[in-house]
């Protein structure tokens, strides 16, 4: 914990990008957290009398084409997007780290064969891969998490493998071997912590790509299913009302930009802080 605090202040003092990114992300998280506890209206409650109302005192951010309160929907929608991205990155980072660690540490035939598959998957844009999975297993939020999670494994596997290739020849690894420490213990307790910084910045970048991919899938109508809200879903629903109510159509998009900008700045700040 103390180490994390020191890292944080190092990044914070280090560059503007991290500071701006951190503040943007913190505000976003606060917005979502408040939404998780309380929203002004139930996000799916329709108000027949106030469709596409524009900004009014009753609905500070307006309503959508079914008269649902935009502020409440944005709060829960951003939450859904964040949760899916989080699940995706967790699956991708966990499986990717394990595969990358084993391949990088042991090398040989295991490395060759697993990396072939990983490379094949890596060449494939993640949204196409997710489309393929969704067409096999169906849509809905859990399927999207699994589909995107699998699609994200290759990039993590490659990053972690690179770190392990570099570290495995170091003296501390040899010394641990000579002390009779088991391979698995060396992998997960000796080498993996050293890959922490690299993993952190890939997690932040991966998080961003996950937000983007989820928004894309939901925008296409094969991600989150109605009446669930997610930012991509809201954008695709409101696109046809761009003419009548431009603000409520554009709001989910601006929130999405906010989210992505926050993560990407924080991620770049971390990467710059390492150098």
């Amino acid at each position: 914990m103390k180490r994390a605090g020191r890292k944080f202040s190092q990044y914070w003092r280090g560059n503007v990008m991290f500071r701006v990114g951190f503040v943007l992300t913190a505000v976003m998280l606060l917005f979502v957290l408040i939404g998780a506890i309380h929203t002004p209206y139930p996000p799916t409650a329709m108000n027949e009398g106030a469709k596409l109302s524009g900004f009014t005192p009753a609905h500070p951010l307006g309503t959508d084409h079914l008269g649902r309160d935009m502020l409440s929907r944005l709060m829960t929608g951003a939450g859904t997007t964040l949760l899916i991205a989080l699940g995706t990155v967790l699956i991708g980072a966990f499986c990717g780290s394990v595969i990358g660690a084993l391949c990088g540490y042991f090398g040989g035939l295991l490395d060759e064969s697993l990396m072939r598959i990983v490379d094949a998957l890596f060449a494939f844009p993640s949204i196409l891969l997710a489309l393929l999975f969704v067409s096999l297993f169906g849509s809905g939020r859990y399927h999207v998490i699994i589909a995107l999670g699998i699609a994200f494994i290759p990039s993590f596997a490659r990053t972690v493998r690179g770190e392990f290739l570099r570290e495995r020849g170091r003296d501390y690894v040899t010394s641990a071997r000579l002390h009779g420490v088991s391979h698995l213990r060396i992998i997960f307790f000796h080498i993996l912590p050293n890959a922490g910084d690299v993993l952190l910045s890939s997690v932040l970048i991966g998080f961003n790509n996950a937000v983007l991919a989820e928004a894309g899938l939901s925008f296409l109508g094969i991600g989150v299913q109605p009446p669930d809200a997610s930012l991509g879903r809201m954008l695709s629903e409101s696109q046809q009302y761009l003419f009548k109510a431009p603000m409520s159509a554009l709001l989910p998009g601006f929130l999405l930009v906010w989210m992505i900008l926050g993560f990407s700045l924080a991620g770049e700040g971390v990467r710059a802080g390492e150098r």
Binding site: L212, A215, G216, F219, L235, Q239, L242, F243, P246, A249, L250, G253, L256, V257, I260, L261, S264, L265
Partner: peptide
């Protein structure tokens, strides 16, 4: 540039539609 990078392409599409299609009427959405 940093901000533009954060705009997902499909939202960029919606923004272009809005500004150049609906406001400036340079093309028909």
């Amino acid at each position: 540039g940093q901000v533009i990078m954060a705009v997902p392409p499909f939202f960029m599409g919606i923004l272009l539609t809005f500004f150049f299609g609906i406001v400036l009427k340079l093309f028909t959405p």
